[in-house]
Write a protein that binds this DNA or RNA. Structure first.
Length: 285
DNA sequence: AATCGTATCAACCGCGTACAC
DNA sequence: TGTGTACGCGGTTGATACGAT
């Protein structure tokens, strides 16, 4: 479990990439694929470490990257998904075709977080019943998320067969299976994918513009879609404000999704652990 | 026009995990 | 089984752009 020595090498260039370097990297990957990132810079004639090449490719040069401002739907999705998985930017990015984890992370830190703070939705007070309704609901979501992680970790550690069944059910039933499904959906710790393929996830998926996601891979094809012009508009301040109000005071708060099963004076996404069987887990996720 | 403060985002750093040997 | 290596992720930094004074 040692540290990667990849960037320890002296003499490797750092800092901003030049157009020439970009071209070398793109040409090489389009011809040969990236293969081993460690070997790539040498093979491509780049004086960079593999890590830097991978980052440049995944965050900037990849052909399927979507440029431009985040749409209203994307912003809404980010806020919602963040409420479930927290700072799991790669998970969130997997649900937003063409957006990178780095981009989403930056956008969250510079835009969305600021808006939430201004509205008092960030930094919730202790206890789910304190504060304004909107803040309380945000706290409830965070509580639910933590509980979900704890429960599923517990369950997955004791039931590998349930995991296999879950994987089978999730990959067959969803019309918006993603690249992540193909890769990591079988991991018992992948809480998000379980949630995403549950009723909760399907509710969230409703916000995605029709046709914006390729059915099998969950990514935009070159030249595909992008016709959802109405979704491409940039939100003005009033739109954004209203969006957060909507999220906090309606969807996050509501039982309209059938999420909250009150107990112990609070709420929970799940029935008590002792009634959670493998079968019920399969049904739920 | 110059200076200063703030916002943005590309890129880096370091850690955790998976995997090969 | 233990160790080393490579990769991916999230947090952070620093350069640059932009707006205010």
């Amino acid at each position: 479990m040692g540290r990667a020595p990849c960037c320890d090498k002296k003499g490797l260039k750092k800092g901003p990439w030049t157009p020439e370097e970009d071209k070398l990297l793109v040409d090489f990957i389009q011809t040969n694929g990236h293969g081993s990132w460690r070997l790539l810079p040498k093979l491509a004639g780049l004086n960079r470490c593999g890590k830097s090449c991978r980052l440049r490719w995944t965050n900037y040069l990849r052909p399927d990257i979507k440029r431009g401002p985040f749409t209203a739907e994307e912003q809404k999705s980010i806020v919602q998904l963040h409420g479930i998985v927290g700072n799991k930017w790669s998970m969130i990015a997997a649900q937003l075709p063409g957006r990178t984890d780095n981009e989403i992370k930056n956008y969250w830190n510079t835009h969305l977080k600021k808006h939430l703070r201004l509205m008092g939705l960030d930094d919730p007070p202790p206890g789910p019943t304190a504060g304004c309704p909107a803040t309380r609901h945000m706290a409830q979501w965070e509580t639910a998320r933590l509980e979900a992680e704890a429960r599923l970790s517990l369950l997955s550690s004791s039931s590998s067969s349930a995991t296999a069944a879950t994987t089978a059910s999730t990959t067959s039933g969803s019309s918006s299976s993603t690249a992540a499904d193909a890769g990591d959906a079988g991991k018992p710790s992948d809480v998000f994918l379980r949630l995403w393929n549950s009723d909760i996830g399907s509710s969230f998926r409703k916000v995605a513009p029709p046709g914006s996601v390729k059915e099998e891979e969950g990514v935009l094809l070159p030249g595909e879609d992008s016709s959802a012009a109405s979704d491409e508009r940039e939100m003005d301040a009033a739109d954004e404000c209203q969006m957060f109000l909507d999220l906090a005071c309606e969807e996050f708060a509501g039982d309209e999704l059938g999420l909250f099963q009150g107990r112990y004076g609070g709420f929970s996404l799940f029935p008590p652990l002792d009634v959670l069987t493998e079968a019920s887990l399969d049904t739920a996720f």
